[in-house]
């Protein structure tokens, strides 16, 4: 005996699945709303443009914002050439051999490494072994390494999605493999590659653990002047003022969280805009 008819089961299933899917939205909305609600009042011109004062409890977070921007750029410089190079190799050159399988395995594992392990690796490798010290350079390289898997996999996907016919036509008029990649494949894969880069950056730049030992400073009186300097950075700053500074006004903590959130959200937004703009322009 059936308790419910097929139609009723169908309705129940649809309802449950829709509910579960909707539940996903709730925590995202709550986080954003809560941070906006509590943080908005802290945002002011002074907050965005002044260094902290009076044991971080007053003034602004400009050095941390600047540091995060610098680290974003540094991470991009570190991850883009390696990431795109690896993606081109995997998509266009790699055969099915031991080397390729090793590379793919390495990328999968790279994506699964906990961020604190990246931080420790960066400390051992870049800070100590290469003697870059605790610096923007060491931090950027660590974050770049962490961004690589995302950049590689999205770039490879973008390259593979360029129609095979473009390659065939290019070869048929006498272009070499590199000319074909350079003039047909990469330009047409670029929107996807850029999207992947920005998403990877926005992910990495919110991380605290990788910069903990490699670049971030609790407080610096001066702004960094070279890549060998330390810098303050938003995620680490937020971590410090939330856990290490007694008597920190809640408003400042939420304000910092809001700035960090806006920073990563705007990167994601830019990536989405680029993707949809390019998709509209795409003709095939």
């Amino acid at each position: 005996m059936r308790v419910l008819s097929r139609q009723q089961t169908q309705k129940v299933a649809t309802f449950l699945i829709t509910t579960v899917a909707t539940l996903v939205v709730i925590p995202v909305l709550l986080i954003i709303l809560m941070i906006f609600y509590n943080g908005m009042s802290a945002i002011s011109w002074e907050f965005l443009t002044q260094p902290p004062r009076n044991g971080m409890t007053e003034g602004g977070i400009m050095p941390a914002i600047l540091g995060t921007i610098l680290l974003t750029l540094g991470t991009a410089v570190a991850a883009i050439p390696l990431g795109i190079g690896a993606a081109i190799y995997l998509a266009e050159y790699a055969g099915d051999n031991a080397l390729t399988r090793t590379i793919r395995l390495a990328i999968v594992n790279l994506a699964g490494i906990p961020s604190i392990v990246y931080g420790l690796f960066g400390l051992g490798m870049f800070v100590l072994f290469f003697q870059f010290g605790t610096s923007i350079l060491a931090g950027s390289l660590t974050l770049g390494l962490m961004t690589l898997p995302i950049v590689i996999s999205t770039a490879e996907e973008a390259i593979l999605s360029v129609p095979q016919a473009f390659r065939t036509v290019s070869y048929s008029v006498g272009a070499t493999r590199w000319q074909t990649i350079r003039h047909q494949v990469l330009p047409n894969a670029m929107p996807g590659i850029i999207t992947g880069i920005i998403l990877g950056l926005s992910r990495a730049i919110g991380e605290t653990a990788p910069i903990l030992f490699t670049v971030a400073a609790f407080y610096l009186p001066n702004l960094p002047t070279s890549v060998f300097d330390q810098t303050m950075a938003l995620p680490y700053h937020l971590y410090v003022i939330s856990t290490q500074v007694p008597g920190m006004p809640l408003q400042v903590q939420y304000g910092t969280a809001l700035v960090l959130l806006l920073f990563t959200l705007s990167l994601t937004f830019v990536a989405t805009m680029i993707r949809s703009a390019m998709r509209r322009r795409r003709e095939w």
Binding site: A165, V169, S172, V173, G174, T176, Q184
Partner: peptide, 19 residues
């Protein structure tokens, strides 16, 4: 082979302009 393909051109079944 690249020179060869310039001297022996080809047109495919599906019209395929490049972007």
């Amino acid at each position: 082979v690249f020179d060869l393909r310039r001297r022996i051109g080809m047109v495919f079944a599906t019209p395929t302009p490049l972007p």
